[in-house]
Simulated scan of single mutants.
Amino acid sequence: MTFTQPGSHLAGAAVAAVLLLVGCLPTTGPTLTVPEAFERTKSGEVTLIDIRTPMEWRQTGVAEGAQRIDMRHPKGPDGFADQVLAEVGGNKDAPVALICRTGNRSGHMQKALLDRGFTNVYNVGGGMVGSRAGAGWIQERLPVEPCPRC
């Protein structure tokens, strides 16, 4: 028989919820710093994909060289994966780096792609605005393309 403190399951759930909110959950795959993502995108080593929403693209602009694929695909994660696959010419082994606001949502979508057979997916820690994972694209003063009609 296992004894637990009354309400201990609630405390565990509360801790998990807080970690989700601050983006501290571990990623499921490799990460890139913002400067690494910039250099690899610039050299053509990786396809950078901004998974944020059109409203977010309009607010901050988009990292130079990034493709825009909203993670909220009408067909869910499978539709998102299909769109990423089309972007990389049907090659699930092609290097892809996902960027969002802080690196949290891109970590979730990294897992979604890995679960669907992609083999070379990076999460850009820090994202566009920065987080505990590191400085963001904007903080690093890297080039941003405006997206007024996104």
Results as ranks from 00 to 15, higher is better:
F118I: 05
T60W: 10
P30M: 12
L85Q: 14
L114W: 08
A81Q: 12
S131D: 01
R141E: 12
T47Y: 12
H108I: 10
A133T: 00
V18D: 03
W137N: 04
P54E: 07
Q5M: 14
C24L: 15
T47N: 07
W57P: 01
E64K: 15
A94N: 02
A112N: 12
L10D: 14
M1Q: 11
V46Y: 13
P146C: 06
A14R: 14
I138V: 09
V15Y: 10
P30W: 04
T2C: 00
V22S: 05
T102F: 03
K92R: 15
K92N: 01
N104T: 02
F80V: 04
R132Y: 05
S43N: 14
T53H: 08
F3M: 01
S131F: 02
P146D: 04
V22R: 11
T31A: 07
S106N: 10
E87M: 12
A112L: 10
R132N: 02
P54M: 10
K111H: 08
G134N: 05
A14M: 11
G107A: 11
L10G: 14
E87G: 01
V15C: 05
K42D: 06
K75G: 01
N104A: 10
P143L: 10
R116C: 07
V144Y: 10
E145L: 06
Q67V: 13
K42N: 09
F80S: 02
G103K: 03
C147D: 06
V34N: 09
H9I: 12
G127Y: 03
V46H: 09
A97E: 06
G90P: 06
P77F: 03
A13V: 03
Q110G: 07
F118Q: 03
V62E: 02
R132Q: 08
F38K: 09
A11Y: 14
G7H: 13
G134F: 11
G107D: 04
F118N: 03
Q83P: 00
R52E: 03
Q139L: 09
R68L: 15
V18W: 15
G134T: 07
A63Y: 10
R58F: 05
P35R: 12
G117V: 10
C24Y: 09
G65Q: 09
S131A: 10
P30T: 11
F3V: 06
W137S: 04
G136M: 05
Q5D: 05
T60K: 04
P6H: 08
Q59K: 11
K92C: 01
P74Q: 04
T53L: 15
M71Q: 06
A135L: 11
P54L: 13
R58M: 13
A86K: 14
T102A: 07
Y122D: 00
T27Q: 12
K111S: 12
G65L: 11
A11V: 15
G65V: 13
P35F: 10
A66V: 07
A11T: 11
E36D: 14
P54D: 04
A86P: 00
A133Q: 06
V84C: 01
N123K: 13
E145H: 03
E45L: 10
F38I: 00
G79Y: 07
G44K: 06
P77T: 05
V96Q: 04
A112Q: 15
I69T: 06
G136R: 04
T4D: 08
V18E: 09
L142P: 01
P95S: 08
Q67L: 15
G65M: 11
